[in-house]
Design a protein around this nucleic acid. Structure first.
Length: 1057
RNA sequence: GCUGAAGUGGUGGAAUUGGUAGACACGUUGGACUUAAAAUCCAAUGGGCAUUAGCCCGUGCGGGUUCAAGUCCCGCCUUCAGUACCA
């Protein structure tokens, strides 16, 4: 303790002299929090003649607060968006830059199942960690607007939107969602014949009279087929042992990834979202938004638009079947109606509903066996196995719409029940799958392409297609033939042009506890929405977070989970309480047991930030009309088909409802690349002994680890240190009596070779002295914190850290005593020991260094490896920056307000060059190059010994978005009382960059040889003359006459000759 | 297979409309300061030949356009990512 006083004294003396980043950063983070520096103003607060500032909305994809906390890869996007947000504030914008948590999710629930701890508690703890970590990096978030998806005051509105979706249907004529009451009106006045809606495939036609005659339940059932969210039987992957539904990627080889339990396909009643209604608009909308092309492409593929025709084939009635059973139609969708004359068979999915009806008695056994065999195969199996061709003939035939020829109908599992109509017209000459199928089953392959050989494979090239052997389509190109075929089909009443989308409706139910409850109760099996005024319906307490014994979702464990309502009075009660209540004027019933999926809460949060505390509306119209939409959204591309597609869907829905002014929620989106870890490896080696040119391995061997430059890819390596280790070890372990004892050390052959001839220990050790070799056995990862900037391993640190693995280990390194590891770039993860924690970086180098270094690593969108060693570069830069403002003799703050007349020109040039470049860089999201620019500027100003306030003050504003803490500190030392975030961005002045001369590169045949300083006033001719007169030019030409001289004034001179 | 992105020193990367390739850093080597270490500062650093000037080769590979190509065009190779029996 006695040194501390002296030490403390030293610090106080130096506080203004040295760059004490820890103190500075703490100070300003506290200041920002206390003064609410980054609070965004809503229009309602402008008032009092305050002018309405232009708005800018910068948003990060909000995090799931995991227990592991943040690693250095996570904040990359947040830093970029923070720089942009701070920049926009300097540019005079009212910036909305909020943050929150996507706090419902599986890990918390899994943890709850294991420990019994309520997910809300662990989530709260995790959020605290996240908040602390985010705060220490110095983000300019407006925390007063924080939202959490698991907060009832937030998920109230998630439930509210669900109700709106339930109360809506999609009118294809108006091409928008409309209130369900409109649909009910039309049903009761005209039935559903003329209703053009996005609905289930199997709706039955009814008249107004029929509708009005239906029971209430029947009417509700029909309406479910039209609602934008609906209950439907869906096939799911059910794992009985785990009691839950699994996603496709949770199943490996037909069994659950966790535990290896069998998985069956099961039909379950689930909520679904009719996102398919929006397929067309989701696709078209992509044209209007500035999102990365690869991301748009992923969404386009996911939506999967294909243009073609639907064709109806009549099944030829089979004499053995009755007339009713015999008349069937098969609808197919094809993108190639031009190839209709190439059809030589049809293929139905084995699950197709017509299969059993049309199968002839003779084929029945074979077809049923095939159906059974396919049902056993998981979807994943079927997808993975593309090579095996299988199928069965139904015995039935369809009639070709034009040629009236009979076409055999097959079933095959290469046709998917879930896509199109689950049936295809097979054109083997034009589709490789059809071709393979036809070949396998000896079905004819008629050629309908002019001048094309199809003896080897199908011909699928649309561009070069000329149709032949096709009646009225002969000689036509693909495009013309398609049009003509559709025209003829329509004339026949057996088809029409059609656009198909791959996009499926999204299942919205999860058998989980930790998610939003549905605002739904059931009466006679029919779902009823709870009135919005009773929201939120909060998650009930349960004793266990597992499914019930009867296989119900975890909410089935809740003691109180019935809705009971009389008039405005409503409560969640127990089953008994409900059953004992008076049925008179009672509303209610059992509440929904499923919860909503992870993407429910994240599909509208960006709008809620605009007015997050509003308890009466999801957001006020005033707020949404002011903030409008996200101007810049930054996040990972892994959300391309999840969050980003569903959010666009909900936003379009809310647009249809007139709630939001734009039907796209984010104008511009940037995908930040991932920061990868640099793993470190040591080489575990196995010793061998070489006897008569053969290598014999030691059966049991030491924990020996080699440095990369000792053991690098070589087959067998000799090493003195290693050999000594082995000999010493053998010496210690060698039993006094040899016979039979050493067998655990060597392979048997070695024993045979040695035993007889060398019964004496020392004799043997001597004998093998020069014959010990090492071979790489395993590359083992070591924690990167024990590796320094030169890839040298801190062996003591590693041994101290490990409990067992390295306790008795030997490390064989270089002669100079260092031990180098192998480095490899991999995804950052705990199991790879390559995670770098931002806490340590902030402590050691400061948040400003972390922020700058993350940007300095490379372009934002790019994947790039993290290497802590490099951070000293930006850290040194910040120290130099600090020094630039502390140039007095004793190192204290020194800035002159009256600049020396001499030298200011150079400094102004440096400043304005920097302003220009940094502004361009930020606008282009090229943050890495800005950091270099700052380095150059500070290097130049330091060399110029610049102390002028006129230069150093604006420079701080430029740097402040990147390194806000140091900028605030120096700003206050300059005498400012307000945060630097209120300062306006310096104005670029071209006049300071005007040059009178240019150092021209002089090239010969395109190769630069030397440079020449020439006035920029010179004409082309003057330049040419000056260059040709130069001694060096003559030297280069060596007497040759230049054929041509290219002069680009201000750029370059090139001499050809 | 299809779709998309990218290949530049030992490493991360720069070169914005074709005009001095390798900015800015890391690392490495040498030097200064120090009893020493750290910190700091200075110098060198694409490869090769010469070691003084200088010369040759160099942006995945092979061609082409051009006075001039990392950048534009054609053909390939490799890596990464997404996706997959989509009719």
């Amino acid at each position: 303790m006695f040194i501390n006083r002296k030490f403390a004294l030293l610090i106080t003396e130096n506080i203004t002299m040295k760059y004490h980043f820890n103190e500075i950063e703490k100070k300003w983070q506290d200041y920002w929090a206390k003064n609410q520096t980054f609070k965004a103003t809503n229009p309602s607060s402008f008032g009092g003649g305050q002018e309405e500032a232009p708005k800018y909305y910068v948003l990060d994809m909000f995090p799931y607060p995991s227990g592991a906390g943040l690693h250095v890869g996570h904040p990359l996007g947040y830093i970029a968006s923070d720089i942009y947000a701070r920049y926009k504030r300097h540019k005079g914008f009212n910036v909305l830059h909020p943050q929150g948590y996507d706090s419902f999710g599986l890990p918390a629930e899994q943890y709850a199942i294991q420990t019994g701890q309520h997910p809300a508690i662990t989530t709260e703890e995790n959020i605290k960690t996240y908040r602390r970590q985010l705060d220490q990096i110095g983000f300019s978030f407006d925390w007063s607007r924080e939202v959490r998806t698991s907060d009832p005051s937030y998920y109230k509105w998630t439930q509210w939107i669900f109700i709106q979706l339930f109360n809506s249907w999609y009118n294809k004529d108006a091409d928008k969602a409309e209130d369900i009451t409109e649909l009910i009106k039309r049903f009761s006045s005209e039935g559903n014949t003329n209703v053009n809606a996005a609905c289930d495939d199997n709706v039955t036609i009814f008249s107004a009279e029929e509708w009005n005659g239906f029971s209430s339940e029947k009417q509700q059932e029909i309406l479910l087929q039209y609602r934008l969210t609906y209950l439907a039987e869906t096939e799911v992957n059910w794992c009985p042992a785990l009691g839950t539904v699994l996603a496709n990627d949770e199943i490996v080889n037909g069994v659950s990834e966790r535990g290896g339990h069998p998985v069956i396909r099961k039909k379950m009643t689930q909520w679904s979202m009719r996102i398919s209604a929006y397929a067309k608009r989701l696709l078209q909308g992509l044209e209007t938004i500035d999102w990365p092309e690869p991301l748009k492409e992923i969404q386009r593929n996911w939506i999967g638009k294909s243009v073609g025709a639907s064709v109806t084939f009549n099944v030829i009635p089979n004499v053995t079947l009755s007339a009713v059973e015999g008349s069937h139609k098969i609808d197919v969708f094809t993108t190639r109606p031009d190839t209709i004359f190439g059809v030589s068979f049809m293929t139905l999915a084995p699950e197709h509903e017509l299969v059993l009806q049309i199968t002839t008695p003779e084929q029945r056994a074979e077809v049923e066996a095939y159906i059974e065999a396919t049902a056993k195969r998981s979807e994943r199996d079927r997808m993975a196995d593309v090579k095996t061709i299988s199928g069965a003939f139904t015995g039935a035939y369809a009639e070709h719409p034009f040629s009236k020829e009979p076409i055999p109908i097959w079933i095959g599992d290469y046709v998917l029940a879930g896509y199109g109509t689950g049936a295809v017209m097979s054109v083997p000459c034009g589709d490789q799958r059809d071709y393979d199928f036809a070949q396998h089953f000896n079905i004819p392959i008629p050629n309908i392409f002019e001048g094309v050989d199809i003896s080897e494979e199908a011909f699928a090239d649309k561009e070069n297609t000329i149709i032949a052997n096709s009646d009225f389509l002969n000689g036509l190109s693909y495009k013309k033939a398609v049009k003509r075929a559709i025209y003829e089909l329509e004339k026949l009443g057996q088809g029409q042009g059609k656009t198909n989308y791959r996009l499926r409706d999204a299942v919205f139910s999860r058998q989980r506890y930790w998610g939003e409850p549905f605002p739904v109760y059931y009466v006679n099996g029919m779902p009823q929405m709870i009135d919005a005024k009773h929201l939120p319906i909060t998650l009930p307490e349960v004793e266990k977070y597992l499914p019930t014994e009867t296989g119900e979702p975890p909410l089935g464990n809740a003691k109180k989970w019935h809705w009971l309502q009389y008039g405005d009075e409503a409560n969640v009660v127990s089953k008994e309480e409900f059953e004992n209540s008076s049925p008179l004027e009672r509303l209610g019933g059992a509440l929904e047991l499923n919860t909503m999926p992870g993407w429910a809460g994240s599909s509208q949060y960006f709008n809620r930030y605009m007015d997050p505390q509003n308890d009466d509306e999801i957001f006020s119209q005033e707020a949404i009309n002011y903030w409008q939409q996200v101007d810049l959204y930054i996040g990972g591309s892994e959300h391309a088909t999840g969050h980003l597609l569903y959010s666009r869907f909900w936003q379009k829905f809310m647009f249809d409802l007139g709630l939001v002014p734009y039907d796209e929620f984010a104008k511009k989106l940037i995908n930040q690349g991932m920061i990868l870890g640099t793993s470190a490896f040591v080489f575990k080696a196995r010793p061998f002994i070489k006897i008569e040119d053969r290598f014999y391995g030691l059966k049991e061997f030491l924990n020996i680890y080699f440095s990369i430059d000792v053991l690098n890819g070589e087959e067998f390596v000799e090493n003195v240190n290693g050999t000594n280790l082995i000999l010493k070890w053998l010496d210690e372990k060698w039993p006094i009596a040899l016979e039979g004892q050493e067998s655990h050390l060597f392979d048997e052959e070695v024993i045979l070779a040695l035993q007889i001839r060398h019964p004496n220990k020392y004799d043997l050790l001597n004998k093998i002295k020069n014959k010990v070799y090492f071979k790489l056995y395993q590359e083992i990862r070591v924690p990167v914190e024990f590796v320094d900037s030169s890839d040298c391993l801190n062996i003591d640190g590693l041994v101290d850290w490990s409990n067992t693995q390295y306790i008795n280990a030997r490390f064989v390194g270089n002669q100079d005593g260092t031990f180098k590891v192998k480095r490899d770039v991999e995804k950052m993860s705990k199991s790879k020991y390559n995670v770098v924690n931002p806490d340590n970086i902030c402590e050691q180098y400061g948040a400003d260094s972390l922020r700058m270094y993350e940007m300095f690593l490379g372009p934002l969108e790019q994947y790039k490896p993290w290497n802590t060693a490099g951070i000293t570069g930006v850290h040194n830069f910040l120290k130099k920056l600090w020094k630039l403002y502390h140039q007095s003799e004793n190192g204290s703050f020194y800035v002159t307000s009256s600049p020396p007349s001499e030298g200011l020109g150079e400094a102004l040039k440096t400043l304005h060059k920097t302003i220009k470049k940094v502004e361009e860089d930020i606008e282009n999201f090229s943050f890495n190059t800005s950091v270099s620019t700052f380095m150059i500027a500070v290097n130049e100003l330091t060399a110029q010994k610049c102390t002028s306030k006129a230069i150093l003050e604006p420079l701080l504003v430029l740097i402040s978005p990147y390194a806000p803490h140091i900028a605030e500190e120096l700003w206050s030392q300059l005498g400012h009382n307000e945060s630097i975030s209120t300062a306006s961005f310096p104005k670029f002045d071209e006049s300071h960059l005007v040059e009178s001369t240019k150092n021209y590169p002089i090239s010969f045949n395109g190769k630069m040889r030397f440079t020449m300083e020439l006035s920029l006033d010179l004409s082309k001719e003057d330049i040419e003359e000056a260059v040709l007169a130069n001694e060096k030019t003559k030297e280069q030409l060596q007497g040759r006459e230049p054929k041509k001289v290219i002069v680009v004034p201000g750029k370059i001179v090139n001499i050809v000759g």
